Simulated scan of single mutants.
Amino acid sequence: MQALLPAQCELFLNQYTCSELAEYKQLFGTIDPNNDGYITCNQLKNYLMCSMNHISSEELEEIVNEADLSGCGRITFDNFMQLILNRDLKEKRTETKSVFDSFDLNRDGYIDILDLSAVFFSLNSKDENQIITVFKQLDRNNDGKVDFEEFQEFMDYCNDLPF
């Protein structure tokens, strides 16, 4: 097993720990049994069919096409990591959208102060100053409502906090 190259570590360092990168490198090596530094589209398809119980052929093709950036049928480790990163970001965005929707009580596509107050009250927090403070932090453009992008920025900020 080859060690990660400094450029590879640097490319994904902001998103993954070196330990996680090492695990992905090991997985890459598992999918690349001849250890030539590339995964063929067929190798990736075979791995995905074995590891994912109910993957449709459409999903399989979508994943392979997303990984094969050059279209040459070979996937480098960097391409593989980009696929994982894209999938992780997509999953994170979907989860954040679900949370946003649970705050958007009137389903108008925005969180307003009434939506936020109702959520706080449902959590037995009736401190109006706290609600206003949180709302001001969420409403980055001060238009009186929080759209999904503002909410996403706030959630990303919270996820980056060291606790």
Rank of each mutant, 00 (worst) to 15 (best):
S57I: 15
D108M: 01
D112P: 09
P162A: 05
M81L: 15
V99H: 01
A3T: 12
V134F: 00
E128F: 03
Q15E: 09
L161Q: 08
S51T: 14
V119C: 03
K126P: 00
V64E: 05
R74A: 10
V99L: 14
G29I: 08
Q26L: 06
T96Q: 02
M155F: 02
G71L: 08
A118Q: 12
P162I: 02
F80E: 01
S57Q: 13
L161C: 00
K45D: 01
Q152M: 15
N129D: 12
Q15A: 10
L83C: 02
D160A: 14
F154T: 09
G144V: 02
N53S: 12
E128W: 02
D147C: 08
S98F: 12
N42V: 04
I75G: 08
Y157C: 14
N35R: 15
D68S: 04
M52W: 09
P6Y: 06
Y47W: 12
K145P: 07
M155Q: 03
I75W: 08
E128C: 04
K45V: 12
S98R: 15
L27D: 00
Q15W: 04
L13D: 14
E23Q: 13
N65R: 15
P33I: 02
S117R: 13
L105D: 05
N159E: 10
K97S: 11
S57F: 10
D127I: 03
Y16W: 04
N124R: 14
R107K: 15
S117Q: 10
D127A: 03
T40D: 03
V64G: 05
E61K: 12
I31K: 00
D101L: 13
D139E: 03
N35W: 06
I55E: 08
F154N: 09
E59L: 06
L44F: 02
G71C: 08
N141H: 12
N35L: 12
N129F: 05
N65A: 13
K97R: 15
A67L: 09
D112T: 03
C158H: 08
E20Q: 15
E91S: 11
A3Y: 09
L13T: 06
L138N: 00
L105R: 09
R140P: 01
E66Q: 12
T76G: 01
I75C: 04
Q2S: 12
N86Y: 09
Q82D: 06
M155S: 01
S51Q: 15
L89R: 13
N46Y: 07
E23S: 13
I39Q: 02
F103W: 02
V99Y: 05
G109T: 01
A22I: 07
R140G: 07
P33Q: 00
L27G: 11
I63V: 10
G109P: 08
Y16H: 09
N86K: 15
L123E: 00
F103G: 04
F103N: 01
S19Q: 15
N141C: 10
D104Q: 00
S102D: 06
L69H: 03
T94S: 11
N129Q: 12
L161M: 11
C50E: 14
R140D: 06
L60A: 03
R107Q: 11
D147H: 04
K97A: 14
A67D: 06
E149C: 05
T40A: 07
I84C: 04
G144I: 03
Q2R: 13
C18N: 13
L83S: 02
